[in-house]
């Protein structure tokens, strides 16, 4: 892996630069514009806790009847840690997450249990002591931004579909949908690879797949910023990838606008075999990699939405229909 990295470094030197004009022509959204003209302009800072604290997101989603993974319990204080084990007495599959974690840090998935011994999906053993220590670490803020004290959230495990079989090295990917002023504008999925060590991080070599808003089909895929047609590990072609229940994905993501009130929002949706699409988490500062995954700039779509008449309210269904027509690949 080190040699790979050296090779990539050599290839990327001297760095290739695009002209400002060509970026502008393609409507690429830059970090400064995203921060200034979208996040600061459309996301009220006092709404951030709703998305930065997953327990709040969860409670709000339940109130708005937006499907999310079922909650088993929330641990707020160290003295409650023993009661967590009580909660998990009859569970053999569950997920423990830090409420204020970011980038998937501190998420522990247990998929199997044999008596007092738990197992991760990878087969690694987890003892009861490991479990309580993990919860303690979460509470002390190990995984939260700035190390502030945190809560641990225990959720039901997601029953994954086989849609992504052959498209993911490990775990099952979620779908990121950017919702601007209540309109879905772009979608992508991040697929882990052997190179990314099972992580869904594009920098580390995960595949970014742009998804057509109209059909839910993969329309474009990149690894290390380069366009690819097949999954690098399995060779499975991306043109066969189509997300089932796509309209429902778009709809629950769109309804998060009413729920969270954020004008510029990233919704992470995951497909459960039994329950359908579920909202995994929301993000008030969604990244720009979605443009690379789609091979498309966001700017023109955002401007199109800004130009709409927002005086007459439209239902989430109407907005989804609009985006599907307007932003079809």
């Amino acid at each position: 892996m080190n040699i790979d990295w050296l090779k990539r470094l050599k290839e990327s030197f001297p760095p290739k630069l695009a002209s400002v004009r060509s970026l502008r022509q393609d409507g690429v959204l830059g970090m400064n514009t995203r921060n200034h003209a979208y996040i600061q302009a459309y996301n009220d800072r006092k709404l951030y806790p709703i998305v930065d604290d997953k327990t709040q997101t969860k409670k709000l989603a339940i109130r708005h009847k937006i499907p999310t993974p079922d909650l088993i319990g929330i641990i707020n204080f160290q003295h409650q840690v023993p009661s967590a084990l009580e909660l998990l007495k009859n569970k053999s599959e569950f997920v423990i997450k830090p409420a204020k974690g970011s980038a998937g840090k501190g998420i522990l998935v247990i998929s199997k249990r044999e008596g007092d011994l738990y197992f991760k999906p990878s087969g690694a053993k987890v003892t009861k002591a490991d479990l309580t220590r993990h919860i303690s670490n979460i509470l002390s803020g190990l995984y939260s931004l700035g190390g502030v004290t945190d809560s641990a959230m225990i959720e039901e495990i997601i029953q994954f579909t086989d849609t992504f079989d052959g498209y993911s090295y490990q775990g099952v990917p979620d779908i990121r949908i950017i919702v601007f002023k209540g309109y879905p504008v772009m979608a992508m999925s991040r697929l882990s690879t052997e190179a990314s060590d099972g992580k869904a991080n594009l920098h580390q070599g995960a595949v970014g797949v742009g998804i057509d808003l109209a059909t839910g089909r993969a329309r474009y895929a990149v690894q290390f910023d380069q366009s690819i047609k097949r999954h690098p590990d399995t060779g499975k072609p991306f043109d066969q990838l189509k997300i089932p229940l796509w309209d429902e994905h778009l709809l629950i993501a769109t309804r998060c606008y009413e729920m969270a009130g954020l004008g510029y929002l990233g919704a992470d949706v995951v497909l459960d075999r039994v329950r359908g699409p579920l909202i995994l988490e929301l993000n008030a500062r969604p990244g720009l990699a979605i443009q690379t995954a789609n091979g498309l700039g966001l700017q023109s779509r955002l401007s199109r939405i800004e130009s709409l008449d927002h005086e007459t309210p439209r239902t989430p269904e109407e907005r989804v229909d609009f985006s599907k027509k307007e932003f079809a690949a």
Partner: peptide, 16 residues
């Protein structure tokens, strides 16, 4: 300032 950052000219070069 809402223009592009220098590193973005590199980051989005493949896209263009």
């Amino acid at each position: 300032y809402t223009g592009y950052r220098l590193t973005e000219l590199h980051r989005f070069q493949p896209l263009v």
